[in-house]
Lab assay of single mutants.
Amino acid sequence: SKIRITWGDKTWEWDGDDEEVWKRILEWARNLGDEELWRHVKEWVDK
């Protein structure tokens, strides 16, 4: 399956939905430097 994140007018996609993928997404969000996006992603990961 895919994980799709839409933020503003951008959309990103990742293949898979296991823990490793979420770790990569969390790292990606942090590297993007958008605090609010990172917080949202972290909330999803922690669920």
Score class of each variant (00 low, 15 high):
residue 1 S to D: 11
residue 1 S to V: 14
residue 1 S to Q: 13
residue 1 S to G: 15
residue 1 S to W: 07
residue 1 S to I: 15
residue 2 K to R: 11
residue 2 K to A: 09
residue 2 K to C: 05
residue 2 K to N: 06
residue 2 K to D: 03
residue 2 K to Q: 06
residue 2 K to M: 08
residue 3 I to G: 02
residue 3 I to A: 02
residue 3 I to H: 03
residue 3 I to Y: 02
residue 3 I to K: 03
residue 3 I to Q: 02
residue 3 I to L: 09
residue 3 I to W: 03
residue 3 I to F: 03
residue 3 I to M: 04
residue 4 R to V: 14
residue 4 R to N: 07
residue 4 R to A: 09
residue 4 R to H: 10
residue 4 R to D: 02
residue 5 I to L: 14
residue 5 I to S: 00
residue 5 I to M: 05
residue 5 I to Y: 05
residue 6 T to S: 10
residue 6 T to Y: 10
residue 6 T to K: 08
residue 6 T to W: 08
residue 6 T to V: 11
residue 6 T to Q: 12
residue 7 W to V: 05
residue 7 W to R: 03
residue 7 W to N: 02
residue 7 W to D: 01
residue 7 W to H: 04
residue 8 G to Q: 10
residue 8 G to C: 07
residue 8 G to R: 11
residue 8 G to P: 01
residue 8 G to L: 10
residue 8 G to A: 07
residue 9 D to R: 01
residue 9 D to M: 01
residue 9 D to N: 06
residue 9 D to S: 04
residue 9 D to A: 03
residue 9 D to V: 02
residue 9 D to T: 04
residue 9 D to W: 01
residue 10 K to T: 12
residue 10 K to E: 11
residue 10 K to G: 05
residue 10 K to R: 12
residue 10 K to M: 13
residue 10 K to I: 11
residue 10 K to L: 12
residue 11 T to E: 10
residue 11 T to C: 12
residue 11 T to K: 04
residue 11 T to I: 13
residue 11 T to M: 11
residue 12 W to L: 06
residue 12 W to D: 01
residue 12 W to M: 08
residue 12 W to C: 01
residue 12 W to R: 02
residue 12 W to V: 06
residue 12 W to Y: 15
residue 12 W to A: 04
residue 12 W to E: 04
residue 13 E to D: 07
residue 13 E to K: 01
residue 13 E to H: 03
residue 13 E to Y: 06
residue 14 W to C: 02
residue 14 W to A: 02
residue 14 W to D: 01
residue 15 D to N: 13
residue 15 D to L: 09
residue 15 D to F: 07
residue 15 D to R: 03
residue 15 D to H: 08
residue 15 D to P: 10
residue 15 D to I: 11
residue 16 G to W: 14
residue 16 G to L: 13
residue 16 G to I: 12
residue 16 G to R: 12
residue 16 G to Q: 13
residue 16 G to F: 14
residue 16 G to E: 10
residue 17 D to V: 07
residue 17 D to T: 12
residue 17 D to N: 14
residue 17 D to Y: 08
residue 17 D to P: 11
residue 18 D to S: 15
residue 18 D to V: 10
residue 18 D to A: 12
residue 18 D to G: 14
residue 19 E to L: 13
residue 19 E to S: 13
residue 19 E to R: 12
residue 20 E to Y: 12
residue 20 E to I: 10
residue 20 E to W: 11
residue 21 V to T: 15
residue 21 V to M: 05
residue 21 V to H: 02
residue 21 V to C: 03
residue 21 V to A: 06
residue 21 V to F: 04
residue 21 V to W: 04
residue 21 V to S: 07
residue 22 W to N: 03
residue 22 W to C: 03
residue 22 W to Q: 03
residue 22 W to T: 04
residue 22 W to F: 11
residue 22 W to E: 02
residue 22 W to K: 07
residue 23 K to V: 10
residue 23 K to G: 11
residue 23 K to F: 07
residue 23 K to Q: 12
residue 23 K to I: 09
residue 23 K to E: 09
residue 23 K to P: 06
residue 23 K to S: 12
residue 23 K to H: 10
residue 24 R to K: 11
residue 24 R to D: 06
residue 24 R to Y: 10
residue 24 R to T: 12
residue 24 R to L: 15
residue 24 R to S: 10
residue 25 I to E: 00
residue 25 I to C: 01
residue 25 I to N: 00
residue 25 I to W: 01
residue 25 I to R: 00
residue 26 L to K: 05
residue 26 L to V: 08
residue 26 L to H: 03
residue 26 L to E: 05
residue 26 L to W: 07
residue 26 L to A: 05
residue 27 E to W: 06
residue 27 E to I: 12
residue 27 E to A: 11
residue 27 E to G: 05
residue 27 E to T: 09
residue 28 W to I: 01
residue 28 W to K: 00
residue 28 W to N: 00
residue 28 W to S: 00
residue 28 W to M: 02
residue 28 W to Y: 02
residue 28 W to Q: 01
residue 28 W to L: 02
residue 28 W to T: 01
residue 28 W to P: 00
residue 28 W to G: 00
residue 29 A to Q: 00
residue 29 A to G: 03
residue 29 A to F: 05
residue 29 A to K: 00
residue 29 A to Y: 02
residue 30 R to N: 08
residue 30 R to A: 13
residue 30 R to M: 11
residue 30 R to F: 14
residue 30 R to D: 05
residue 30 R to G: 07
residue 31 N to I: 09
residue 31 N to P: 02
residue 31 N to V: 11
residue 31 N to H: 11
residue 31 N to M: 13
residue 32 L to M: 15
residue 32 L to H: 15
residue 32 L to F: 15
residue 32 L to P: 01
residue 32 L to Q: 15
residue 32 L to Y: 15
residue 33 G to C: 08
residue 33 G to Y: 06
residue 33 G to K: 06
residue 33 G to D: 12
residue 33 G to Q: 09
residue 33 G to F: 08
residue 33 G to M: 08
residue 33 G to W: 07
residue 33 G to S: 07
residue 33 G to E: 09
residue 34 D to A: 04
residue 34 D to R: 01
residue 34 D to H: 04
residue 34 D to Q: 03
residue 35 E to G: 04
residue 35 E to M: 06
residue 35 E to A: 08
residue 35 E to W: 06
residue 35 E to C: 08
residue 36 E to Y: 05
residue 36 E to D: 15
residue 36 E to S: 08
residue 36 E to C: 09
residue 37 L to Y: 03
residue 37 L to I: 07
residue 37 L to T: 02
residue 37 L to A: 04
residue 37 L to D: 01
residue 38 W to D: 02
residue 38 W to N: 04
residue 38 W to L: 14
residue 38 W to I: 14
residue 38 W to V: 09
residue 38 W to S: 05
residue 38 W to E: 08
residue 38 W to T: 08
residue 38 W to H: 08
residue 38 W to Q: 08
residue 38 W to M: 14
residue 39 R to A: 11
residue 39 R to I: 12
residue 39 R to C: 08
residue 39 R to Y: 07
residue 40 H to R: 12
residue 40 H to D: 06
residue 40 H to A: 10
residue 40 H to P: 02
residue 40 H to V: 10
residue 40 H to Q: 14
residue 40 H to W: 15
residue 40 H to E: 11
residue 41 V to N: 00
residue 41 V to E: 00
residue 41 V to W: 02
residue 41 V to I: 14
residue 41 V to F: 04
residue 41 V to A: 02
residue 41 V to D: 00
residue 42 K to Q: 13
residue 42 K to G: 03
residue 42 K to H: 07
residue 42 K to D: 04
residue 42 K to F: 08
residue 42 K to I: 12
residue 42 K to R: 12
residue 42 K to M: 12
residue 42 K to V: 12
residue 43 E to M: 07
residue 43 E to H: 09
residue 43 E to W: 08
residue 43 E to A: 10
residue 44 W to G: 01
residue 44 W to Q: 07
residue 44 W to I: 15
residue 44 W to P: 00
residue 44 W to A: 05
residue 44 W to N: 02
residue 44 W to C: 03
residue 44 W to K: 03
residue 44 W to T: 05
residue 45 V to N: 05
residue 45 V to G: 05
residue 45 V to I: 14
residue 45 V to P: 02
residue 45 V to L: 10
residue 45 V to C: 11
residue 45 V to F: 15
residue 45 V to Q: 10
residue 46 D to H: 05
residue 46 D to I: 07
residue 46 D to L: 06
residue 46 D to Q: 10
residue 47 K to Y: 05
residue 47 K to Q: 14
residue 47 K to S: 10
residue 47 K to A: 14
residue 47 K to T: 11
residue 47 K to W: 04
residue 47 K to D: 05
residue 47 K to H: 14
residue 47 K to N: 11
residue 47 K to C: 04
residue 47 K to E: 10
